[in-house]
Structures are given as C-alpha cells and as structure tokens.
C-alpha cells in the first residue's frame, strides 16, 4: 500500500477509523466473554472480521442519515453512533438498554442517531430502507439511507423488490452487501450463480461496485461516491464488500464447514491488522504509543459500558405489557 492509497486521509481521520473499528472488535470480544460468564442471556452474532465495512460506510454518512442493520448488528449500531453503554445494557437485558430490554442483540438501534432497530429477518430491512429513502425524498431532507445485508440476504425476494423500487424512483439508498462467504454454514458458491452479488446491479439499473471490505479507506471512498450520487438525486447503488467473518455465525458455531487454512488466510487479512500497519509501518502517521493511547481509550469505554450494564436494573416482568402500541409520552 502506498501513501497515495490514503486518499488524503489525515492522521486524525485514520486514528478515528481505527478507534471505531477497535471499539467494535473489543466490544464483540467482550460480549463473547460476558456470554460465557452468563451475563448476556441471548445468543450473539458477532461482527468480528467485518469491522471495516460498518466503519467505512458510516464514515461517509451524515449524522442524520439512516442505517438499517441485520441480525448481526452490533457493528452497524456502534459505527452509526449508538453508545456502547446502551447496546451493552440491551444485551444484558436491562431497562437502560437502547430498546429498554425489549429488543436484545438482534434488534439494537437508536433512531435519535439514525440507527433503525435492527431487523433480524434476513433481507427484510431492504424494502424498509427503500421506504425511508422515499420519505427522505418526499420530505426533501437530503438524507441517505443504508441497508446492510449479507450475500445470503441478497437472495431474498424482499431485496429484489426493494432494489427495483429504489431504482425506478431514483431513491437515495445504498444497498451494502457484506459478502462474508458463508450464509450461516452455506458457502456463497452454492447459493449465487454469478461471480459477484454486485453483478446483479445492472439488472436493476443501478451502479454495482465491488470493494475490498477489509480495507476501511476503500469502503469509505466507494461509499462516498455512492452517497454523493444519492444526494444528487441520481438514485441507489449496490456496493458489495468482500469480507470474512473471523468468528462463528452465532455463539454455538464451531465452523466445521470451513477449513482452518482458509481462516488463517483471512486472519492475515484482518482489517484491524491492516489499518494498524497503514498507520505505522506504511505511512508513519502514527506511532505505537499513539495506537496504545487509542486502545486505552477503547478499553475505558468498554469498562464503563460493562459496569453500566451490570449495575442497571432489570425490567419488571410486567413491563412486557408496555409498548405493544405507541404510547404518547
């Protein structure tokens, strides 16, 4: 990687991206540990290995833009600005959680920072994203909407309908496919006949872009281009980020459907190793002590978040009756 590949990113920008990626990585590692300690009562779909996608995409967005996540949403939520405290408390099932303990891991979100409650039915977030983009266009708000989904989600009919509608109405929405090569255990080669999910974009009449999903700057830059196009009223884009889930699909997954050699190859391409190397060896923009400072900041955020979640009260059982319908505050 050369200095030119920085695309004018400054030290501050790069360290910010690193901090956000590291926060997700460490958040997820802590979740795993807290699950094993019995602190988190649900299953977990961890985002380890895909951090550059959420962080790179969200780095190209405005605070009032919308993001719709998936059943693997912690990374999307953190990158969009939902606090570690409110997500961790949600995972613990505490009333201080971002969904007041009604959602859990698969539904974290906070509309006040543009993060929809995550939608855990695969592909179902895409038409809702198209609707939010229609709303942005009707209201003239200039907002852009991002729907994340995997290469598995790309095969849902909902995604097809959503892309077609977004394209005919030229809506400001980005369909970001995180192709991590496996839909739970099923390899992409068994479920997609074309080489790239992005190849399908031409059928919808929108640009299809393929990007190295482990290169946070590359993801940010292709997203910026798509966002500019969307805000200019030129319509949606499909961005396929090639990446890899470095952990199991969910807590119970031993990954027996893939080889240890393949995993080792992808560990060498770990997006965090990559940005560390870029910051230090390749550009000299940061020293090891700069990185250590970021790491200390992240640890402090997480220590605080875990303590907050641990000390927060549980909901009363009868709180289950609240919020079936909207209640005016």
């Amino acid at each position: 990687m050369t200095i030119a590949s920085l695309n004018n990113a400054t030290q501050v920008e790069l360290l910010t991206l690193y901090r956000e990626m590291l926060l997700i990585r460490r958040f997820e590692e802590q979740c795993n540990a807290l699950f094993l300690q019995g602190k988190i009562p649900s299953t977990l779909h961890l985002y380890i290995g895909q951090e550059a996608v959420a962080v790179g995409v969200c780095a190209a967005l405005r605070p009032d833009d919308y993001v719709l996540g998936t059943h693997r949403p912690h990374g999307h939520a953190l990158a969009k600005g939902v606090t570690s405290r409110s997500i961790m408390a949600e995972l613990f099932g505490k009333v201080t959680g971002c969904c007041k303990a009604k959602g859990g891991s698969m539904h974290v979100g906070d509309m006040s920072v543009g993060m929809f409650p995550a939608i855990a039915i695969v592909g179902a977030n895409a038409p809702i994203a198209t609707g939010a983009a229609l709303s942005a266009k009707m209201r003239g708000s200039g907002q852009v909407v991002v729907a994340f989904f995997g290469e598995g989600g790309a095969n849902e009919g909902a995604v097809h309908e959503a892309m077609n509608m977004a394209a005919i109405w030229k809506l400001p929405v980005l369909f970001v496919c995180e192709n991590n090569l496996y839909g739970a255990s099923t390899p992409v080669s068994q479920i997609v006949a074309v080489e790239n999910v992005a190849d399908r974009a031409v059928a919808y009449g929108m640009p299809g872009v393929i990007v190295d999903g482990n290169d946070v700057l590359a993801v940010r830059d292709v997203t910026r281009t798509a966002v500019e196009r969307a805000r200019a009223g030129e319509g949606p884009s499909l961005i396929e980020c090639k990446t890899y889930r470095l952990c199991g699909h969910s807590r119970s997954d031993a990954c027996n459907y893939r080889t240890r050699e393949e995993e080792a190859e992808w560990r060498d391409k770990d997006p965090l190793l990559r940005i560390r190397k870029l910051l230090t060896e390749e550009t000299g923009l940061a020293t090891l002590s700069d990185l250590e400072q970021v790491e200390a900041e992240v640890e402090a955020i997480l220590t605080d978040a875990i303590q907050f979640a641990d000390e927060s009260p549980e909901p009363a059982p009868e709180d289950a009756l609240l919020h079936v319908f909207w209640e005016d505050k």
């Binding site: 198209t130 609707g131 709303s135 077609n164 509608m165």
Partner: peptide, 17 residues
Amino acid sequence: SEIGIAGVAIGAAMTGM
C-alpha cells in the same frame, strides 16, 4: 411488489410520513 409496498410503507412511516 407486495413485500416492497409494505416495506416501503413501514420505512416511510418510521421516518415522518
């Protein structure tokens, strides 16, 4: 596109329409 019609209505409703 009935899935789309419903989804679009939901997304629009959640964002001020």
